[in-house]
């Protein structure tokens, strides 16, 4: 298997539905909390070290071969807000479709059969990485990057932010991405001793609150 598969998986054009989601950027822009490149960077940093770390841990654990259904339950316990669980499962189902087309495997088939309405997206992504022959750390990187690239892309559309500035934000976050992916993979590596409690459960109150508020907006550009 090729390490280059990571580029395919982490590519923003990977057809798994991410383009319709802002990762909480749309409500933050509407509230005036994201208004420029600096505030976008702080938003992304906060999301990365909370929701991103949790998702990267789940993905690394799935890529390491831990029971995806147990991980799906661990994801539920770490996602108290209904709107975010719905989004995670919707994106998980779309990720599953793309993953089965690109890296078919019996493990993906089994999870798809057990969760026809979608498992949590990071779990599916981790299993996709495993099917592609990638390592847990690779899966953690893919998820961590997606955690910040989604809001950055959305901010370009929502704020007409200069795309060069938005890309520079992503580049500045690289050390944070390294730390997050490493922490997530290390946590997944402790599961044999500590169980799923080893997985991060970091939360961000405003992401949770505004995700549920956003789900009730009658008119919005992004699905989440």
């Amino acid at each position: 298997m090729s390490r280059a598969a990571l580029f395919v998986l982490a590519d923003g054009r990977f057809p798994a539905g991410g383009h319709a989601h802002s990762g909480g950027a749309e409500p933050a822009v509407a509230a005036g909390r994201i208004k420029d490149a600096d505030s976008l960077e702080e938003f992304c940093r906060g999301r990365l070290h909370t929701a991103g770390l949790v998702a990267a841990g789940l993905a690394a654990a799935a890529a390491a071969g831990h029971d995806p259904l147990a991980l799906d339950e661990a994801a539920d316990a770490r996602t108290p807000v209904q709107a975010l669980r719905t989004t995670a499962r919707k994106l998980g189902r779309q990720m599953m479709r793309a993953a089965r087309a690109t890296w078919p495997s019996a493990e993906l088939d089994a999870l798809s059969a057990a969760r026809p309405r979608g498992a949590h997206q990071p779990v599916v992504l981790g299993l996709a990485a495993r099917s592609a022959g990638l390592a847990p750390l690779d899966a953690a990187y893919a998820v961590a990057y997606e955690t910040v690239s989604g809001p950055a892309t959305a901010a370009v559309r929502l704020l007409s932010l200069d795309p060069f500035d938005a890309t520079a934000v992503l580049a500045r976050l690289a050390p944070d991405l390294d730390r997050t992916a490493a922490a997530a993979a290390a946590a997944a590596g402790r599961i044999p001793e500590e169980g799923f409690d080893a997985l991060p459960a970091a939360s961000a109150p405003l992401l949770d609150i505004t995700a549920q508020q956003h789900a009730a907006w009658p008119v919005r550009l992004f699905a989440s």
Binding site: A20, R93, R97, A154, L158, R220, F222, A223
Partner: peptide, 21 residues
């Protein structure tokens, strides 16, 4: 209704997963 993240052509051409669903 499918939501398209401000890019309706993406949802029908480049990433059709939400529409297939």
């Amino acid at each position: 209704a499918v939501e398209t993240g401000a890019c309706p052509h993406t949802a029908i051409r480049d990433d059709i997963s939400a529409n297939l669903e």
